[in-house]
Amino acid sequence: MNYCNRITIQPTVAPNSLTYPRIRPNFVKLQIQNYGSSSLLKIKASINNDNNNFVSSKSELTLYEVLGISESVSIVELKRAYKQKARKCHPDLSPPDQVKEYTKRFIMVREAYEMLSDPVTRAIYDRDLAKGISFAFSTSRRYCHRSHYDQVSEEKKKWKRQWESQLAELEKKSDGKKDKGNMAWAARVRQRSNH
């Protein structure tokens, strides 16, 4: 599966994030536009025109789809998928005239991986997906802003606040599922630390 050819991320983050309203949607949606071969032109056009309205999304990808994997993959498979994707879209391996596009794709793949490779964020993301909330992909939002270790605890709190209501709802709905979910999570944590 090669999503890279179809994905058009919003071209430059700064202008695009500048266009967010004060009260933001919870998540910035990943834009996919099936422009086919003309998509590169579209990107370039958008870069040159900052105020362009590129919010006209036609479909969305989950983070799993960005990496081309199913939701049940183990951390080992996830890593493998990430590395395969990295080979396909890392700018170092791009044709010289497509460095910008490759850079954007790679950033997206990498941040999807960073989110899913952390058991905490992955668990939250999974619950979110299960609830049918379209969890969005963002190249820049705080959710992906986790690489700094010191920030993690603070962000966990943020996450907690943000999802508390939804989690409570979810748990009410399915007490049975909850145990299973927790086990899977623990298993993932073990897998990760044993690795």
């Binding site: 430059t12 983050v13 700064a14 202008p15 994030s17 500048l18 266009t19 967010y20 309203p21 004060r22 009260i23 900052d50 105020n51 890392h90 700018p91 170092d92 460095v99 850079t103 820049s140």
Partner: peptide, 29 residues
Amino acid sequence: PEINVCMDVDTANVLTVLAGVVMPGSRTP
């Protein structure tokens, strides 16, 4: 006012800093 500061580092390690301002309710800088 929302002052958005964006930083970009490419594979050649070139750093570009972008900044802009957005007012509440507006979708454009």
